[in-house]
Design a protein around this nucleic acid. Structure first.
Lengths: 336, 336
DNA sequence: TTGAAAGCGCTAACAG
DNA sequence: CTGTTAGCGCTTTCAA
């Protein structure tokens, strides 16, 4: 029932080695034998055993993609691109969803070693900064986010500081002065966006009220509902900046539930140009990340490093684009 | 540098077989030797080679998840649940994104065989109905959608006919009579929802205008923009039903771009209770699919079949829930 | 309970 | 260009 390379060889009246050569697309096989082998493969319904192939060839043709939550549209989009490029490069992708859980993260990182993956693309959690002290993995890795200042791996990131500053500048220009920022507390990305937010505000001599929250809609909604009552240090904010689409979602919900208007009562801006941001009310102003390009860059950096392992470490910083929509219309004068 | 089971054995002063037994959690090892082995594993930094393990043990501990587009939130949610249950069951998940491409679908199906996966969860494209005639795969498979009427695999689906009918009934009750339905043209799901739509309308003696479109926002937007000009058979519709969230997105965009109001000019309802559907305008009426339950059921069916391969084929049909929102407010009388 | 030996299915040297 | 010969690293008989 189960047919191996030897069976094919017997049917094709050649040696197993020849079959192997044909299968691996090797060109050092005569056309005659190649035809025989191909016929035999069809006849026997042969299916290569990838485990055996990998064991022997020491080449897994597999890359790992390790992210916090595939439901985060940013990671979904990246995953899609990575899979696409990998497919074209003849590689498989193992998707690892860590759920922000450092334990699961460590498990999957170890799994990648055991799988002897060719390489990995990794969006680390902030906690994994300790990883900087851990032994380096046995395979090339591209990070989708910084891990501390001293990462030894290739990295591709958004210019988060500049992007957050863009939002602040835009809101300031439109007349908003009491801004509050909500930032994910599990990633360096959140950290950096907070820094950009604080720095930009201080350039205007304004106080920054920056809050770290768990990066999900529920936590953000609760936090903002609370702030909208005026419970924050500086009373009710007139503008809210959200560091990712999940937090943004929570913010919009909270504002809606509080019966407030956007931007009449409070302006809103965020990160990630999700489809729906254009549809809510008169649209929500967002920073668009070049998600496809981020994924493609990461994957291409990885493929590049496989070819030239000793090339110097590279860090690619991509810029976001500010898409202005109705949620940040100029502040009504009456409010002042 | 690279340490294998033999190295561990040497350090632990036992045989490779004993190391293997300890690693596989076997209980037929004395505590003394077990301790020695565990110490040696730590000392040497041993990492098992999964390819070798799988080759020898003929057990991959891997399941394949094959879907059209991981960016479709339905699949994302399912994927998340599948990964979670798999992780707890000590299994890995290989994610395969077919992009609705039958060729890629076939490729991945074959790949799963070559990986000797333990099982697979597969959301087939409509074209793959031919698969019914293809030789059955060498592993248990659970389908997330019907493939023709005669599938030989376990299946879990939404009661699409009933769900579509629910939307029609709801709209009819609210006074809408000129409904148009847009359905994805690549899945049985789209097909079934169309059938439910048509049947329900005919029960009211109403003509059904059902259109199959490519299941993406752009195609849907173009189609609806066209229809809103009154180009359809029965003039401009007073209500639109969309068979998935991408099509729904296109519909909302088209209506917005046409400068029309929801539901003042045209009512809208769809499938998938995406977060944003509650936020657009006064909310969009949708059928909520029990996505988590669908994923969990599929995964548990798969695990169940691995234990009892000869159990009879099962088909689980889950019901959707209609969430009524502002997009289907009672039709203004003036319109008639 | 432990070890010795025999492969899992394949590819990579090495000859010819 | 082709075949022969060794294993890749591990688990699993089979005896002891």
């Amino acid at each position: 029932m189960k047919v191996g390379i030897k069976d094919v060889a017997r049917v094709a009246r050649v040696s197993p080695a020849t079959v192997s050569r044909v299968l691996s697309g090797g060109n050092s096989v005569s056309d005659a034998l190649r035809a025989q082998v191909e016929a035999a493969v069809l006849e026997t319904g042969y299916l290569p055993n990838l485990s055996a192939r990998r064991l022997r060839s020491r080449h897994s043709h597999t890359i790992g993609l390790i992210v916090a939550d595939i439901r985060n549209p940013f990671f979904t989009a990246v995953g899609r691109v990575v899979e696409d490029i990998a497919y074209r490069a003849g590689m498989r992708v193992i998707l690892c969803n860590t759920g922000e859980d450092p334990e699961k993260e460590a498990f999957y990182l170890k799994l990648m070693e055991e799988e002897r993956v060719t390489g990995a693309i990794f969006a680390p959690t902030r906690q994994s900064a300790d990883r900087a002290k851990a032994p380096p993995p046995g395979f090339p890795m591209v990070l989708l986010d910084r891990v501390g200042p001293y990462s030894r791996e290739d990295t591709v990131v958004l210019d988060n500081v500049a992007a957050a500053a863009m939002l602040v500048e835009h809101l300031h220009e439109r007349g908003y002065r009491k801004m509050i920022g909500l930032f994910g507390n599990t990633s360096m990305t959140g950290q950096e966006r907070r820094d950009g937010f604080v720095q930009a505000l201080s350039r205007y001599g304004l106080a920054a009220e920056a809050v770290f929250v768990s990066p999900n809609a529920e936590a953000a909604e609760a936090e903002i509902a609370h702030r909208l009552t005026g419970a924050g240090a500086s009373g009710r904010p007139d503008a809210i900046i959200c560091s990712n689409s999940l937090i943004l979602l929570g913010a919009v919900r909270a504002i809606k539930n509080a019966g407030l208007g956007i931007p009449a009562d409070v302006a809103v801006a965020g990160f990630d140009n999700e489809h729906w941001t254009e549809l809510v009310g008169s649209g929500i102003t967002v920073i668009e990340q070049p998600v496809e390009e981020i994924g493609a860059t990461a994957m291409n950096m990885l493929l590049g490093r496989l070819e030239t392992p000793d090339a110097p470490i590279r860090k690619v910083v991509l810029s976001g684009r500010c898409i202005v929509r109705g949620s940040t219309e100029a502040k009504p004068l009456a409010a002042e």
